[in-house]
Design a protein around this nucleic acid. Structure first.
Lengths: 340, 340
DNA sequence: CTGAAAGCGCTTACAG
DNA sequence: CTGAAAGCGCTTACAG
């Protein structure tokens, strides 16, 4: 394989001059620079990544630590992943995707072997075991998902509290008086999936403010159970005129359930979901929904991480950035039907 | 950061002895070995990945080159990715996920910088531009997806020809005489998505063999267009009693379409899809389907790649492994309804 | 069974 | 504006 010595020889300069000509870290005479660049082109030279990492203590690689649970909605994860890998590349970084079950072990292994310059953690839980090892690591990190204690780590998430409030507020404006919220499975809550209760608490607060009755149930993550769950909910709360879905599987299942019951939205029932726009487009879920902002959150996390890498690691204070919820209107919100 | 010199000093041996004690590449007296192991534990030593890569020319990292097209079904990709990353880790490798648009440029960059020991290419097309650079690279590769010319590269794919045959055969057994195949969008074909015509050709051959009439249409990749497409197909071929779906979006859209038309499967129409079992479970698509075998294909590709890394690169002949299609029976296949 | 030393391919003070 | 040399942290012949 061609190395910088080959380039230097071909250009008739020393290895250090070749290196400087490429990095631009000191002034090089135009003639020499051109010779070096030509040699690079002709020989097809690319620096050896391992050698460069050893010399500079920089790898230009970020680690992306995912967590994939059977009872959460895996397909949604891809949006975060693509946002992160694409933005990282734009900023000059490659991405190591880490999916092993033991995130603590993986993080420690990768941090101490200095394979990466920084970490992005996905699907962060209320008490996330990966956070202390991350704080102990030499490399900085950024979180997608708000933990109970984000001290010392840049954090990005959808503002789920505001999302819950917004859902209720919008339906209140249209005149609804009773709503039902379908959340992720209770397992997700037990595991520390704070976004579930943050949205529920926000919805509850706003409902109380307006004197709206809010029913709250946990739905399954897969069909056909979630279909049964939805039918049960509709049976149990017949007076509810609006459905809030913080559960992607519920959004995917609801069209069939409504059709089977001879109901349509928004004529019979208003619906607001919370899922990514890409997901809605792929399945064309006909429901207005708060965008998960998966792509945006992933990109923001990478941007912050890289900016921290390019300055002194702790130069700037750590941020918690909660994205304001936005409803993509797909026409499933209207006034409730006349009282039966 | 603690290095092998620190370990050696703490154990009272030379750096080479410490290294050999850890690698087991030569016999070490038990006492010395224990001293070294204790030092490693106490100091929390992990070898520096860059230094090791430089010394050994091995990174223990694989590159996973994805291609994500807007008109194919992105969520399905995650299954391949997870199969690959998980199996790689089991075999001692981490995975660099590469998603940038220009796969040729990415492959060349990563190969020449020696960031990885091998490549897995996803979504390989009939004339895939990444194959020649892969053949030119120092590192071996494995493909998921069968190209027109797989010379010199290990290749894994579902046997789509057999899948098309199996779909038709199964419906023929039940007495169907006219079927409609809904494929991916025509754009996918134009881009070289050979699996589309391989399945269609297989279905066509088997249909001809049995004197079955086979209609073939290309469906959209997103709703609501795919819903319209399905309605158009049902209007246009009213005599067809079986639907073959080589299009995930069609499978996701069909339940609503059937419900809206007052049809049910299999009573009114038999349906066979082709998608991953996980996808079916997440959405509980009620249709029998040939499993994409995404997880299995990803794992097999990694296993072959790693075994090639562990022997001489070209020691064994290259394989083309086509996974035999298997139908997951979900009860959507039955005899056609009595002639209207 | 163990150690001293060379070498992997870079970058970057140091010296001119 | 440029070069000779040290050093990053490993592994592995070479020598004993």
């Amino acid at each position: 394989m061609v190395n910088i010595g080959d380039v230097a020889r071909a250009a008739g300069v020393s290895r250090s001059t070749a290196s400087y000509a490429l990095s631009g870290k000191r002034t090089i005479s135009p003639a020499v620079r051109e010779n070096v660049e030509r040699a690079v082109r002709e020989l097809g030279y690319t620096p050896n990544a391992g050698a460069r990492a050893l010399a500079t203590s920089r790898t230009n690689v970020l680690a992306l630590l995912g967590q994939f649970f059977d009872d959460e909605f895996a397909p949604a994860m891809l949006q975060y992943i693509l946002g992160i890998t694409n933005r990282a590349r734009e900023l000059g970084f490659d991405t190591l995707l880490v999916t092993e079950g033991d995130g603590v072990e993986a993080l420690t292994r990768i941090a101490t072997s200095r394979m990466v310059d920084g970490f992005v953690l996905l699907n962060v839980a209320e008490f996330d075991e990966r956070l202390d090892p991350l704080r102990a690591a030499q490399q900085p990190g950024a979180l997608v998902g708000l933990p109970g204690d984000a001290t010392g780590i840049d954090t990005f998430d959808l503002d789920f509290d505001a999302a819950g409030r917004l859902m209720v507020e919008r339906l209140h404006e249209m005149g609804h008086r009773e709503l039902t919220l379908v959340s992720q499975p209770e397992h997700v809550v037990e595991r520390g999936g704070a976004y579930v209760w943050r949205l529920a608490d926000g919805a509850r607060a706003k409902a109380d403010e307006h004197g709206i009755r809010l029913n709250h149930v946990f739905g399954s993550s897969h069909q056909p159970q979630i279909g049964d769950d939805l039918n049960a909910v509709l049976d149990r709360y017949p007076q509810a005129t609006g459905l809030l879905l913080n559960n992607e599987a519920a959004a995917a299942a609801l069209p069939s359930v409504l059709a089977a019951r001879g109901l349509s939205s928004p004529a019979d029932i208003s619906v607001i979901g919370r899922y990514s726009d890409e997901f809605a487009r792929t399945f064309s879920l006909p429901f207005s929904a708060i965008d998960s902002a998966a792509d945006l959150l992933g990109r923001r996390a990478v941007e912050q991480l890289v900016s921290r890498l390019r300055t002194a690691a702790d130069a700037s204070p750590h941020v918690i950035e909660l994205i304001a919820p936005v409803i993509d209107d797909r026409g499933s919100i209207a006034a409730p039907p006349p009282r039966r």
